[in-house]
Amino acid sequence: MIKRDITDIARKYSKYFSVLAIVGPRQSGKTTFVKNTFDKFDYRNLEEPDVLQFAENDARSFLEYRGKGLIVDEAQRVPQLFSYIQSIVDKNPKAKFILTGSQNFMLYEKITQSLAGRIGILKLLPFSQSELKVNSKTDIYELIFKGFYPPIHDKNIPPEVWLPNYIQTYIDRDVRQIKNITDYSLFSKFIRICAGRTGQIVNLSSISDDVGISVNTVKAWLSILETSFIITLLRPYHTNYNKRIIKAPKLYFFDTGLVASLLGIKNSQQLNEHYMKGALFENLLISELIKFYYNKAIEPPIYFWRDKLGREIDILVDTDNGILALEFKSASTANVSFSKNLEYWNNLSGNSPNNSYVFYGGEKSFSTKAAQFLPWFKLNGILNESW
């Protein structure tokens, strides 16, 4: 079994808090993780109909346990449990609960009100590059095509078989739980159109026109994808060096394999020749950045910067040691022109070239006056150095 990077901090959190929530997309490995990490805890899964009925009909009895604590899988299925858990941990501070969910608990007002100060929340995404031991021998386009969902790697299920079924299950089950959508074929069209806009500035009106839904519906459906950890909206950098900056977010998916499947890409060779190749390469590294911080229980301090003249920095990382400026280029051969926007940014912001990086699809490392050029698989090393 692949050890998850979040293991140590999850154990610490379980000591600090009476309630620990592990949230993340369906099939990201949450159940396997909690059952192995907290193997002395009792376990109950609300996906099972009889267990769900038990929880709904007799919450107090449901929450009783004999082990060191109780794991409740897919806890968002019975929101009223949270008030009962609050009462239990207030009366007995030594009580321990581990909750998992494929939706973001923080978006549930009743939950955050009930368990404020009592709950620690960690986000577990599919495998990271560090967990899969990615290195110079890794085929990057095979990695992008496969994505990082555990069943593809643990069970060697072909991504072209597993991912379309995952997408259908997500629409049929998870979307139905979050919001009562009547036209699921239209939602399917929506998510595929979002995949085609990976790495782009979100244009609500354009998506509205392409799907044939209102702008307010686009907003609501984007929120569904965010809530269930399918997409993330990357915000622009907040410091206003220049009034002519873009303020709308950019859209990325948490998993590149999911994007490839939604785009109808059949294999890694087709991906290597696809017009979305650069966007998927960029998405791969941005999702890795997010996982790096989530696995340390930190909201990722990452942004993009772009002005209205089109000058752009793919990622700015706001660290304790200053801003890291990162550019991502899928080309296997480096070109010094890749760092032209970094040079502009450094002059504008006073940022040091020592904190500026171009991660590209090749294997050589070198420096220019504007930035350091590094292979894509060295991103984690730089993040760890800046930590």
Rank of each mutant, 00 (worst) to 15 (best):
Q103M: 13
F304Q: 00
A371N: 02
S332T: 12
R77Q: 13
P375M: 03
T100W: 06
L125H: 03
I88L: 05
L233N: 05
T217I: 11
N347T: 12
S339T: 06
A279E: 02
G381T: 09
Y108I: 11
F148I: 04
M106P: 12
E142S: 09
S130C: 07
L383E: 13
R173Y: 08
S14E: 14
L20K: 03
T169C: 07
T182D: 15
Q168E: 13
Y108K: 14
S356H: 02
N295F: 10
P353D: 05
E226M: 06
P150S: 07
Y43L: 03
V358Y: 08
V23D: 10
G199S: 00
S268Q: 14
L132M: 08
A116W: 04
I167Q: 07
N295T: 11
D73R: 10
Y65E: 01
F359Q: 00
L222C: 02
P126C: 03
N240T: 09
F377D: 02
G67T: 00
I313P: 04
T112A: 11
I171L: 07
L63Y: 05
A21T: 07
L222E: 08
S367Y: 03
E312N: 02
L316R: 02
F338R: 01
L289M: 11
I224H: 03
D58T: 09
F62I: 14
I265L: 09
V34P: 04
N351V: 05
Q270V: 05
I231G: 00
E282D: 04
F338Q: 01
I302S: 13
V19I: 07
G362D: 04
L374H: 02
F254E: 04
K364I: 12
Y84P: 12
L262I: 12
T368F: 06
S114P: 06
N36P: 13
R192I: 13
D209G: 14
I178A: 05
K91F: 12
W345I: 06
T138V: 07
I152E: 10
I191F: 05
I181M: 10
M106F: 12
L309M: 13
D174Y: 05
L222Y: 07
M1W: 02
R192Q: 09
E47D: 09
F38I: 03
A370E: 08
S102K: 02
G362L: 04
L225I: 01
K291R: 11
S330T: 00
F17W: 14
S365Y: 10
D42A: 00
Y141G: 01
F373N: 01
Q80G: 15
G257P: 13
T368H: 07
N104H: 04
V211I: 15
P249T: 08
